[in-house]
Simulated scan of single mutants.
Amino acid sequence: MRGRVLSIAGSDSGGGAGIQADIKTITAMGGFAMTAITAVTAQNTLGVAGVMDIPADFLRKQIRCVLDDIGADAFKTGMLGQAGNITIVAEEIRAYRPVPFVLDPVMVAKGGASLLSGDALTALTGTLIPLCTVLTPNIPEAETLLGRRIGGEEDMVPAARELRERGAAAVLLKGGHLPGTRLTDVLVTADSIETFTAQRIETRHTHGTGCTLASGIATRLAQGRTLRDAVMESRVYLRAAIAAAPGFGAGAGPLDHGVTVSPEWTGGSDDPSGASSGDASSQAAT
């Protein structure tokens, strides 16, 4: 286990996205997951039935307790909800020693429910985006941040470049919401522009894909990978998790975050702890 990742996000009672997806991804990729929960949701694969915000002062307490004792090698943020939460997260990240920060600008749930208040968008743009190592919006999120439409793959590089000019060190613009059998993501940094293309997997089981990719990138950055390698390896893991989706639920179902876990591990040995000297319960995706 290597790489301490603090995920600051909302809880998904259905287990497919949010904090639950983050913990599973970080663990499956060999990191150590820690959390600060911004909100609790009642949801399943069909949609969000309710959201209960965590008090802002308690959010700050969660973050400080983790950082004061365990520390972190990377931050990842997802659903932040309120402008006050964003201000607190920005203050705490800024005060901590420089470590990678992956910002997934979660705005709308897969079922269409809004997860970011109106004034929070201004706070996100003004205080949090300038702190991040990489911003990972999907097409609708990028359109909201830019205030204009992204019509197709040809618009992705200009859009990602414009988003990076808002203060992010790098932008990974995800093209999964665009039509077609080909799926393209664009990574724009200060020095390069690179596209990653793969054949789309036709499935309805895509709940939590954004959370999963961002958490994977944060884990790899925490483990010392370059941003390019972190993106590539996390895309491989995400694709495997989508392909192995268990088929749960009647709507947008969850992924198989445990795709890296070895099913042969039993824990049996002569060691009183129950640990097997020759086996491992999980392997990081490479």
Rank of each mutant, 00 (worst) to 15 (best):
Met1Cys: 12
Asp12Pro: 08
Gly14Lys: 04
Gly14Trp: 08
Gly14Asp: 11
Gly16Pro: 12
Thr27Lys: 09
Met29Trp: 03
Gly30Gln: 06
Met34Glu: 05
Met34Arg: 00
Ala39Gly: 04
Ala39Trp: 05
Gln43Met: 15
Met52Leu: 14
Met52His: 15
Pro55Asn: 13
Ile63Trp: 06
Leu67Asn: 01
Asp68Gly: 00
Ile70Arg: 04
Phe75Gly: 03
Phe75Met: 09
Met79Trp: 05
Ala83Val: 10
Val99Cys: 07
Val106His: 10
Ala109Asn: 05
Ala113Val: 11
Ala120Met: 09
Thr127Ile: 02
Ile129Glu: 01
Thr133Ala: 02
Leu135Arg: 00
Thr136Tyr: 07
Gly147Thr: 04
Glu154Lys: 14
Val157Met: 00
Ala159Thr: 02
Leu173Met: 08
His177Trp: 12
Leu178Gly: 05
Gly180Arg: 06
Leu187Ser: 05
Asp191Leu: 09
Glu194Lys: 14
Thr197Gln: 14
Thr206Leu: 13
Thr209His: 05
Gly210Pro: 10
Leu213Asn: 07
Leu227Gln: 09
Arg235Leu: 15
Leu238Trp: 05
Ile242Leu: 09
Ala244Glu: 12
Gly247Asp: 11
Ala250Cys: 00
Gly251Val: 02
Val261Ser: 12
Ser262Ile: 07
Thr266Asn: 04
Thr266Lys: 07
Gly274Thr: 13
Asp279Asn: 03
Ala280His: 14
Ser282Glu: 08
